Computed example of a mutant assay.
Amino acid sequence: MRRTTVRRTAVAASAISMALLLSACGADKSADAAPDDKAPGKATKALSQAELDKLVLAEGDLKNHKVTEPSKAEVALAKTATSDKAECKPLVDAMMLKPVGSPAATTSRKISTLPEKPAKDATTEEKAEAGLAALGKTVLMSDGVGSYEGKGAQEALAALRTAGEACAGGFTMTAGSDKTKVTKLAPGTYAGGDEAVAFTVTTEQDGAVGTSQLVTVRKGNALVSFFAISLAGKTEQPKAAIDAQLAKLG
C-alpha cells in the first residue's frame, strides 16, 4: 500500500512541476444560454488585468483548500507544452497554465485540498499512517481565468469542444523532458455558467494510469478552466471550486 502511494506521489510531484500536467482529464457539456447582452454581434469589453486579478480565487475563498500563485518556473515550463497532434493543442493549453485562445487578460492559481489533522493524542505511527491516507485523498487543481474581447470567449470554448471530439482517442503531451500519454478523452457534464465543456481524461505516465478532470466554463466574456487530479488515481470533478470561482466572477 505504501509503495503504491509513494509511486502515485512521485507521479503527482512530476505533474505539479509541469504546472499540473497530470494523468487524466474530465467531461463535456454545452449549456447554450445566451443572455441578451452576449447576443451575436454585440461587442463585449474585456476586464483589465488588475480587475481580473481581483476576481480569481484567493487564499481564504475556498474552505479546506490552499490557493497559491504558480511559480515563474512552472509558468515557463507550461509555455513549452506541446502535443503530438496539432488539433489537440487547445486541450493541452487548458490543462496547463496557458490561456485558451487569445484573451486580453489572463491569470491563474494552483489549488490543493487540505488534509485533516490527526488527533492530538495520536502515536507517531498513527500520525504517519494518517499522513499517507491524507496524501491519497489530496486533490491538486489549476485554475485559469481569462477575459476576452468580443466573441473571443465563445470562439475559444468552441475550439476546445472541437479538439475534444478530434482527440477522443488520445494524444501525447510534452512539457520539458516529461511526456504524458492521454489514452482516452471522455465527455462529461458541468451545469453552470453560460456554456461549458468538460472531459474525463485517462492518461498514462511512467506506467502509472489515472484519470483527471478538465472543465472549462464561459461566463459572459470570461473563461474559467479547471484541471484537477487526485493522488488516489481517480479524480472527481472539483465542482465546489469551480462554483466558487464562477460566483466570484459575479
Rank of each mutant, 00 (worst) to 15 (best):
1 M>L: 11
2 R>P: 04
6 V>H: 12
8 R>T: 02
13 A>P: 00
15 A>R: 01
17 S>R: 07
20 L>Y: 08
21 L>S: 11
23 S>G: 13
25 C>K: 07
26 G>R: 00
26 G>S: 10
28 D>H: 07
28 D>S: 12
29 K>G: 15
32 D>L: 06
34 A>K: 05
39 A>Q: 08
39 A>K: 10
41 G>L: 05
42 K>T: 07
43 A>D: 13
47 L>P: 07
52 L>S: 11
55 L>M: 13
56 V>A: 14
56 V>C: 14
57 L>Q: 07
60 G>E: 09
63 K>T: 12
65 H>I: 03
66 K>H: 08
67 V>H: 07
70 P>E: 13
75 V>Q: 14
77 L>D: 08
77 L>C: 04
78 A>Q: 11
79 K>W: 02
81 A>K: 05
85 K>W: 06
87 E>I: 05
87 E>S: 10
88 C>V: 02
90 P>C: 04
92 V>S: 02
96 M>R: 05
97 L>Y: 02
98 K>Q: 15
103 P>N: 00
106 T>S: 10
112 S>P: 00
113 T>K: 00
113 T>V: 01
116 E>R: 01
119 A>P: 02
119 A>C: 00
121 D>G: 01
122 A>K: 02
122 A>E: 04
123 T>M: 00
127 K>M: 05
127 K>P: 01
128 A>W: 01
129 E>R: 05
133 A>M: 02
134 A>V: 01
134 A>H: 03
135 L>Q: 11
137 K>S: 13
139 V>C: 04
140 L>T: 06
141 M>P: 02
144 G>S: 14
146 G>A: 08
146 G>K: 03
150 G>F: 05
150 G>P: 07
151 K>Y: 11
153 A>R: 05
155 E>V: 14
155 E>A: 15
157 L>P: 11
159 A>H: 09
159 A>Y: 09
160 L>K: 08
163 A>G: 13
163 A>N: 08
165 E>N: 10
170 G>C: 12
171 F>N: 11
171 F>Y: 15
179 K>W: 00
180 T>C: 09
182 V>M: 15
188 G>R: 13
189 T>S: 14
189 T>H: 06
190 Y>W: 11
191 A>D: 13
192 G>A: 09
194 D>V: 06
200 T>H: 09
202 T>W: 05
203 T>G: 15
206 D>Q: 14
207 G>W: 10
209 V>G: 06
211 T>S: 15
211 T>V: 15
212 S>H: 08
212 S>W: 10
213 Q>K: 15
213 Q>R: 11
213 Q>E: 14
214 L>A: 12
215 V>M: 07
218 R>T: 02
222 A>F: 07
223 L>M: 09
229 I>F: 14
231 L>S: 07
231 L>I: 09
236 E>D: 15
237 Q>T: 14
239 K>V: 15
240 A>T: 13
240 A>V: 07
241 A>I: 06
242 I>H: 15
245 Q>W: 10
249 L>M: 10
249 L>N: 12
249 L>G: 08
